[in-house]
Nucleic acid binder design. Structure first.
Length: 928
RNA sequence: GGGUGAUUAGCUCAGCUGGUCAGAGCACCGCCCUUACAAGGCGGGGGUCAUAAGUUCGAAUCUUAUAUCACCCA
């Protein structure tokens, strides 16, 4: 093996091998599908946008899913991690449209069919970026089953669902106020609208009463909408305006008269207490208009320009142009009271960034209440469990206030709505035109035209857990893997996606789509800020894996900026934070970094120090393995000759391994990847490397050790490492595979890949508590010597003579058994039991009550040792008085559980003995 | 305005159903290139667990209030 861990050299190669050999597949081809009592395990990947590229959120999420998948596969479950991508209607259309625009054309020049053809072309050539990147992450997805939300089978499922919902009256067409994106020319759902506070104005306008008795002042943030006003509303109890109610107003700049009405909705405290009502362009006003039977006057075109319902002067003006003109005209007419600065919530389309207008159009809707009810119940009843649990509150909150889902979009890329119209405007819904003609007895003399709209992308995503498995056909896949086990997702799409999958899954399969929903946090930058292109703080997971030069990174972060003026600042920041660019950490280090920070429900602040530390951990594992291989390759490790003798260290490390395995299993079962990773880290570094490997040297490099002893140690070295590799494989697949290939044969294990080896199962019979206790004693001993050494600046290499006093029989027996190891580990010359009285001046350490004495002659300063002892005594006295206080509290003694009290008593005794021993030492020094 | 979560060492975070004077990594200080590893080894310093009250024999942990921050919804 190479001296230094080099992830590049191993990662790509292993992934190709795994994929080529079909290790990712659950083998549905074999006959034994759902028999044999084998458990199945299935995770659906949240399908990334086909236009997308891997970002830190994906990398985090995929690490979690892959770790779970690999764990279950090794456990022996029939395991499927289902891959695929989403057609991402608006996003994809925009990407391809931009390419066409660059060629000086629009999509309208091409026409619908040719444009869609272009998109398919684009997908064929450029649509696999993200799947390539997923492979770099080591994701063990079964690529043979990769699906796309627009492929044939899934489109079939979409039609099936649409038709059935329509036939049950759960899909309807209606004229409603929708969120209209005037740039994309489509309706968007509430969830696709992002409202943020922006600076704006509050215009106060005078509306004259028709009878000439004065005017009412109304305030608005969108003065151009006044052209569509059909009333002014006040609160029914508002004393200021009682006599106005029922009167009419002469709406300025128009020739219309509108009533003053009373409605509870009006907040008398806000503004003047008078509200202009524009039912066609405001959601609240729309509701109020319905309550009061107000006319609805649409004044905007699809581009959000003023249409022909408005006075001629403003027609054709853009909404903001019209705003200026109207404000000016009002001002000139003396009808502008004042203009205030104002912070207001501005709704923007999440794709286009355009300011959304409420707009009255014909759209398709899903009637959601009947679907929501069982979906709420499924979570209430525990058929679906959220991890962490509190996310169910968010889910309930939304589901209980859910509104009908607008599913039609006025774009070209997507599932076309399976509805046809005849010349009389009758609607027919069916899978295709032919089916409809047949069903409704329509011959060719009647022309049918398909609805131009496509479905919201999330409509097909909602079917993902079963459409990918072949639904509506009854497939073996569906039978085996549905319901799936867990959905791993960020909280940001609980509404978009999770809730809708639950509703659709229950509706069409009668079962929940997944039993658990694991909700993970967001990956932020090291300062806790959201990563975004415009802030220039984005990290690309691939750059962390492969490394990147500073110049390339700067270029990457500053190119194609929406706000080029930010580029300077970003460049400066980047140069400061990454002086030497980013080194190549490798996939395993990145995955480990994510895993160990995957505490449930908490955001991750991505810190370069962490990933560096875990890259070092990979290196540690690598070098430890090198040591093991050096000492086992070509030697008898007990495979051929089972005459072996196991040392204390051997028994101890095997015991600790069992305990670690249990901890990892428990942690993985409860989605605590952080604890699993932590347990692996601590065992590997602090126990296996720091202690066990060192102890093994005193056997392997010791000529007087017997063959059986050496064999026992080699056997333990290799077995423990082999298990550890399997234990760590789900989190760090590449390095474990690479090392395992060499280690496994030495441990007597045949197999082509670690991927398909069984996951370690702890054996309680292998836990030797006596060995654990004795090892603890040995560690205390070594630690005590080291502390003295370090405390008095004694050279690490200088062999010391150690004296022992006040030892029990057990101490003596333990010393006898472990003397060789102690001498080697603590670098001692000799260990001698002392007759009580003739101790020379010494520095002291304690192991329990046994005293370790290191004679000071020529080594140690008496005053310093005295000071140290005094400090130690003081601290122990403090502890004792605390314990005494506790134990003399009658309430404690009588009410606390016996065990706890006994434990405290024991601590007291131990500490008292320790104190006594320390005091003796101090006295000895003082008397000299 | 409603909801959720957070607040523990200089930084990033653990701390499970209350019970070993509060833990890890990074950073810091000291010693060491000891034949697996300087991407390392050994040792060390550092926190009145946001604040206040309460429950309890006992609170970082449970309850309530306050403060600050973050996110979601309106």
């Amino acid at each position: 093996m190479e001296k230094t861990y080099n992830p590049h050299a191993i990662e790509q190669r292993w992934y190709e091998t795994w994929e080529e050999n079909g290790y990712f597949s659950p083998d549905m081809d074999t006959e034994q599908t759902s028999d044999s009592g084998q458990d199945s395990y299935c995770i659906m990947i949240p399908p990334p946008n086909v236009t997308g590229s891997l970002h830190m959120g994906h990398a985090f999420q995929d690490t979690i899913m892959d770790a779970l998948t690999r764990y279950h596969r090794m456990k022996g479950d029939k395991t499927l991690w289902q891959p695929g991508t989403d057609h991402a209607g608006i996003a994809t259309q925009m990407v391809v449209e931009r390419i066409i625009n660059a060629e000086g054309k629009t999509r309208h020049d091409l026409g619908r069919e040719a444009f869609i053809e272009k998109i398919w072309d684009w997908k064929a050539h450029s649509g696999n970026t993200i799947t390539r990147q997923l492979r770099r992450m080591g994701a063990s997805l079964d690529w043979k089953r990769e699906r796309f939300t627009m492929d044939e089978g899934l489109s079939e499922a979409v039609k099936e669902v649409f038709v059935r919902l329509y036939e049950e009256g759960l899909i309807y067409r209606g004229k409603r106020l929708v969120n209209w994106d005037p740039v994309l020319h489509t309706a968007v759902s509430d969830l696709e609208v992002i409202s943020e506070e922006e600076n704006g104005h509050f215009w106060h306008m005078r509306y004259p009463l028709s009878d000439g008795s004065g005017y009412i002042i109304v305030a608005t943030t969108r003065p151009e909408t006044m052209l569509g006003d059909t009333a002014v509303a006040v609160h029914p109890d508002d004393e200021r305006y009682q006599d106005m109610i029922g009167k009419t107003i002469k709406l300025p700049l128009t020739d219309r008269e509108i009533p003053v009405i009373a409605d509870d909705y009006v907040d008398p405290e806000f503004g003047t207490g008078c509200v202009k009502i524009t039912p066609a362009h405001d959601f609240n006003d729309y509701d109020m208009g319905k309550r009061h039977n107000l006319p609805i006057i649409n004044i905007l075109t699809v581009d959000a320009a003023i249409n022909d319902n408005a006075p001629e002067k403003y027609r054709g003006m853009d909404r903001y142009e019209a705003r200026k003109a109207i404000v000016k005209d009002l001002d000139e007419a003396g009808l502008l009271e004042k203009i205030d600065e104002h912070r207001l919530m501005v709704p923007r389309g999440d794709r286009s960034g355009a300011v959304i207008e409420p707009y009255l159009t014909d759209q398709w809707y899903v009637k959601i209440a009947p679907l929501a009810e069982p979906a709420i119940k499924a979570v209430e009843d525990g058929d679906i469990r959220f991890v962490p649990d509190n996310w169910k509150n968010t889910y309930f909150e939304w589901m209980n206030n859910i509104e009908d889902w607008c599913i039609s979009r006025q774009i070209w890329w997507g599932h076309r709505i399976p509805a046809w119209y005849d010349d009389n405007g009758n609607v027919y819904v069916g899978k295709d035109e032919q089916a409809i003609r047949q069903q409704h007895n329509l011959d060719d003399s009647i022309s049918l035209k398909q609805d131009e709209d496509v479905l919201d992308t999330w409509f097909s995503s909602a079917l993902w857990p079963f459409s990918t498995l072949g639904w509506p056909d009854k497939t073996p896949e569906l039978d085996t893997f549905y319901p799936t086990n867990v959905l791993v997702t960020g909280f940001d799409i609980i509404f978009f996606w999770v809730a809708r999958m639950i509703m659709m899954g229950l509706k069409f399969t009668g079962e929940v789509p997944f039993k658990e929903v694991y909700v993970h946090g967001l990956v932020r930058d090291s300062h806790g800020h959201k990563m975004s292109k415009s802030k220039g703080n984005v990290l690309d997971p691939i750059d962390l894996i492969d490394g990147i030069e500073l110049e390339t990174l700067v270029e990457k972060r500053t190119s194609g900026m929406m706000q080029p003026q930010m580029a300077k600042k970003i460049e400066k920041q980047t140069r400061k934070e990454f002086k030497d660019g980013i080194p190549a950490f490798g996939t395993d280090a990145l995955r480990f970094t994510f895993a160990i920070q995957a505490t449930t429900g908490r955001d991750i602040k991505f810190d370069m120090g962490r990933i560096e530390g875990y890259r070092n951990f990979c290196n540690k594992l690598w070098n430890a393995s090198r040591y093991v291989l050096m000492n086992t390759e070509g030697h008898d490790c007990g495979m051929d000759n089972d005459e072996m003798e196991f040392s204390l260290a051997d028994k101890w490390i095997i015991s600790r391994l069992q305990q670690t395995e249990q901890q990892v299993i428990d942690s993985l079962n409860t989605y605590r990847l952080d604890r699993a990773a932590q347990a692996i880290y601590e065992f590997t570094w602090n126990e296996y490397c720091d202690w066990y490997l060192e102890l093994s040297k005193s056997v392997l490099n010791n000529d007087s050790a017997s063959e059986a002893q050496q064999r026992g140690t080699r056997n333990t070295l290799i077995r423990a490492l082999e298990s550890l590799l399997r234990l760590a494989h789900p989190i760090m697949p590449f390095i474990t595979e690479e090392i395992w290939q060499r280690v496994a044969p030495l441990a007597g294990i045949q197999g082509d890949t670690i991927m398909l080896q069984p996951f370690p199962e702890p054996q309680s019979a292998q836990v030797d508590q006596d060995a654990v206790d004795e090892m603890n004693w040995l560690q205390q001993f070594v630690l005590g010597v080291r502390q003295i050494r370090s405390g008095y600046d004694i050279k690490p290499g200088k062999p010391l003579n150690v004296l022992l006093a006040n030892g029990s029989d057990s101490d003596k027996a333990r010393l006898q058994r472990n003397e060789t190891m102690l001498i080697k580990l603590a670098r001692l010359e000799s260990i001698t039991w002392l007759d009580d009285d003739n101790a020379p001046e010494s520095a002291t350490a304690l192991v329990g009550e046994m005293q370790i004495l290191i004679p000071m002659a020529g080594l140690i300063d008496i005053d310093a040792e005295r000071e140290r002892l005094n400090k130690e005594i003081e601290s122990n006295q403090g502890f004792i008085s605390k314990l005494e206080a506790k134990l003399s509290n009658e309430n404690f003694v009588s009410r606390a559980p016996e065990q706890v009290v006994a434990h405290e008593r024991q601590k007291l005794t131990e500490t008292q003995n320790k104190l006594k021993s320390l005091t003796e030492q101090l006295e000895k020094l003082s008397s000299l």
